[in-house]
Nucleic acid binder design. Structure first.
Length: 576
DNA sequence: GCCGTTTTCGGCCCGACTGTTTTCAGTCG
């Protein structure tokens, strides 16, 4: 079990409990802040504790580090145990219900003895609740709807699903009379892998009527809020969409504010205060004077910062880097010169080699590797050695028929449980590109899985490790393995790790990518396309990689074809 | 409870919208 997650969740729950008890709000924030940083920590917290470095974690001081050590030793945190007696843990979970906050929950616990969801449902149907202060019929209805949403799952929307929907709604907004422009903001602009809602900002001089048109769109199932500057709706599909409007006189401030993240914005505001400024969604102010508002660049500059790409705005060191002028030159979609992980009808793809190659060429790529599955992947119609050699002939044919792109002969080769590969080395040597991947036996023990994967990385025929952690967003946890050791092994043997762009994978994720990048490991960003359309998923991988602070110089498939071929021959030898 | 480019003490982000009020508390982002 992941101790980072356990501890982060306990700290979050403690914060919730303290909120219900109306404790000092800065203490509450301290718990939340520490929880977030522990969650995002690349290292395992046991190891940090072992090195005696808990207090190097941002937001963890003397007291919280003691609590963490105590938890690792005994499995308990005393304060948490004490709090559980005062605030029923089942009741705390009710805070995830929209419209039900800490104050209301405290009253419900105190006056009506609510200890969990079923209690709340009963109470909402009763008469007693109506006697509570500030409690009317609408409030009760709002909580009922909130319960419904939680029961429906209230799940986060994966980026790959959120982005197209957000684009669609944004273009509807852009077409509204009086709208000058509309853009996606919020977590989707930051390319987060999953998203609670969709945030859109419209540029207009007539906010009220744009908001009015927005809440009247046919896609709207329910209007959550409607004001002069903000509208909030639930779509027929149950997705929450927030629209914010801003005029040209505050565009930069609004764009910055509405892009977040919250942690990034809070830190910026503290920085502004230290410089004698104030900031809000209308701009940067010095006393009564507004000193920046037009653009994000101007906004950041007023605070003495370089402009920060949205993907970095998570309070993971980007503000400090921007102050020093050290924001990295992040990889962009346009820097990608080819796709090194795709499938064809030879295994489980929908299109032949020629069609995949032509589609890649039409996207402006210089090369594509068609990397079908190996024999152990039976379900995916993996290729026997014999069929692999037939495929080689097909590749050669395709090279003649589809010009303007280099077609590389590749395979996505299973890493078997013992760490050996699914083709013998003399077959692997025939291939231009060898991507190794785990497709079975996910539930191995940590040490065994680590050994299995590192063994594959040590094979001189292997170029890269595909979807290194095996996680599926919202479905399957990463394999138990030592990611640090995998990264170190890749570095030592000059092998690349993949950022897979399939939207339930995005694997490596942002944090693991940053760990790998910080150590100097090369990355391939690939689509794993099983369809010509899926070649377009590259943007999701690039977005994830940017969140991992990935620079063009670290990306193998940002190399031109000649440099790529050189690297493929001797992956360990390429200099940065 | 954390933290330091004026600080080891005294700070800690800011505004919009709703519902239940009659001036604002609660919630959200």
């Amino acid at each position: 079990m992941n101790k980072n997650r356990e501890i982060a969740q306990i700290f979050e729950t403690i914060a919730d409990m303290l909120e219900v008890l109306e404790e000092n709000r800065f203490k509450i924030r301290a718990y939340r802040n520490a929880a977030r940083n522990i969650m995002e920590l690349g290292d395992k917290i046991e190891e940090v504790e072992g090195r005696g470095e808990l207090q190097s974690i941002s937001g963890v001081g003397a007291d919280l580090s003691r609590k963490i050590s105590g938890y690792l030793e005994t499995g308990k945190i005393e304060e948490y145990e004490r709090l559980k007696e005062r605030v029923p843990p089942g009741a705390v979970e009710l805070l995830s219900i929209q419209g039900l906050g800490p104050k209301t929950l405290a009253t419900l616990i105190k006056k009506l003895g609510v200890r969990g969801l079923s209690d709340l449902e009963k109470v909402l149907d009763g008469e007693e609740i109506k006697k509570l202060p500030r409690m009317g019929q609408k409030k009760i209805e709002e909580m009922r709807r909130g319960i419904q949403i939680v029961k429906e799952g209230g799940e986060r929307i994966p980026l790959g699903a959120a982005l197209p929907t957000a684009l669609e709604i944004t273009s509807l907004v852009r077409e509204m009379p009086g709208t000058l422009d509309a853009v996606i903001t919020g977590s989707i602009r930051r390319m987060k892998e999953n998203n609670k809602d969709i945030d859109i900002l419209a540029l207009t001089r007539d906010g009220g009527s744009v908001i009015k048109a927005f809440v009247e769109l046919p896609i709207v199932r329910e209007v959550h809020a409607q004001g002069e500057t903000t509208g909030s709706i639930i779509t027929g599909e149950g997705v929450k969409v927030n629209l914010r409007v801003a005029g040209p006189d505050s565009w930069g401030g609004a764009l910055q504010y509405f892009t977040g993240s919250q942690a990034h914005n809070v830190k910026l505001r503290i920085l502004a205060l230290s410089k004698g400024c104030n900031l809000n969604e209308y701009g940067v102010f010095r006393g009564e004077n507004r000193i920046a508002w037009k653009s994000e660049e101007e906004f950041y500059e007023a605070l003495g910062l370089e402009w920060i790409p949205p993907e970095l705005r998570e309070d993971r060191g980007e503000i400090e880097a921007a102050a020093k002028g050290e924001i990295p030159d992040l990889i962009q979609l346009a820097d990608i010169r080819g796709d090194l992980h795709t499938h064809s009808t030879w295994s489980d793809g929908r299109y032949g080699i020629e069609q995949m190659a032509a589609a890649a060429r039409d996207m402006g790529y210089e090369y594509i590797a068609v990397t079908d599955h190996s024999p152990s992947s039976r379900i995916a119609n993996g290729l026997s050695t014999e069929r692999l050699m037939e495929k080689k002939k097909d590749i050669q044919r395709a090279r003649k028929r589809v010009t303007g792109i280099s077609i590389l002969f590749g395979a996505e080769v299973d890493i078997k449980s013992d760490g050996s590969l699914d083709y013998p080395d003399d077959v692997l040597k025939e291939l231009d590109v060898v991507i190794a991947a785990v497709h079975s036996g996910f539930n191995m023990e940590r040490a065994a899985m680590t050994a299995r994967i590192t063994a594959a990385l040590k094979n001189p025929c292997v170029h890269a490790l595909a979807h290194p952690t095996g996680r599926l967003i919202g479905t399957r946890a990463p394999y138990e393995m030592d990611i640090d050791e995998v990264i170190d092994t890749a570095l030592k043997h000059g092998k690349a790790l993949e950022v897979n762009s399939q939207y339930l994978r995005l694997d490596l994720n942002d944090i693991n990518t940053k760990q790998a990048v910080d150590k100097g490991v090369k990355i391939i960003i690939s689509t794993d396309a099983h369809h010509t359309n899926q070649l377009k998923l590259m943007g999701l991988g690039v977005g994830t990689a940017r969140r991992g602070w990935l620079q063009t110089k670290n990306v193998i498939n940002a190399l031109g074809i000649n440099d790529l071929k050189r690297w493929l021959k001797t992956p360990g030898k390429l200099s940065a």
